[in-house]
Design a protein around this nucleic acid. Structure first.
Lengths: 107, 107
DNA sequence: ACTTACCGTAAGTAATAACTAACCAAATAA
DNA sequence: TTATTTGGTTAGTTATTACTTACGGTAAGT
């Protein structure tokens, strides 16, 4: 999973990438800073960041020679909405299934 | 990702597995039924189901010679809660960042 | 008992993803 | 200008994952 577009859940499927994303939610950080937190090389972090960026979950801005990455509010909201729809469907299905069990008792 | 325990996001990281999970949210289904919906073999579906089960996202019951899988309400709720905490953290951070920008204007 | 339907598991393969090392580019500092 | 810092990209390797085929096991039907 290193070079093509993908949806939010796939982008967060890798543990290291999820951890990087989580770190960026706490506060914006540079690539080198992030690399310091995890047992992978700086290029590996760069590649994870590219994938997160393609998924719209992070954005970046240049600041001198450094590049600061931050979680992207819009992308996060989009993923949240997508998953909320899923939870909604699930809840509706659970409720319907429960009612199919309870109805006979009401008779 | 075929044999060890993992958290919810990693379990949904694979596209085929996510699709299977989504199908089970719509309605409980047997393994063979699921395999009919996707371009993979039945054993492949079985393996995906095992991973989803290890993640607590699905449960299964025997029904004759068939085995019916269904989304697990408790596991779904747990994952939802975990992600809601993440969204909450993100929202708080975005709000704090926005205020750091707006404060100077208030002076 | 035999057959059929359905499914899990094991083994092996093929595909893909994650990673490192090496290189290059841009911005700042001396 | 030269050196330093920082980080993206490429190439190649390693590790992991998804997959199929083959097999065995259980439950229901004949």
């Amino acid at each position: 999973m290193d070079a093509y577009l993908q949806s939010g859940c796939e982008a967060l499927g890798d543990g290291t990438r999820f951890a990087i994303f989580r770190a960026l939610i706490e506060r914006p950080q540079s690539v080198g800073e992030l690399a310091g937190h995890f047992p992978v090389s700086r290029p590996a972090v760069s590649q994870h960041l590219r994938i997160l960026k393609q998924a719209g979950l992070v954005r970046d801005r240049k600041e001198g020679t450094r590049r600061i990455y931050a979680a992207d509010a819009e992308g996060v909201a989009r993923l949240r909405l997508e998953l909320d729809l899923l939870w909604g469907d699930a809840l509706a299905a659970f409720k319907a299934a429960a009612e199919r069990w309870e109805e006979p008792h009401v008779i």
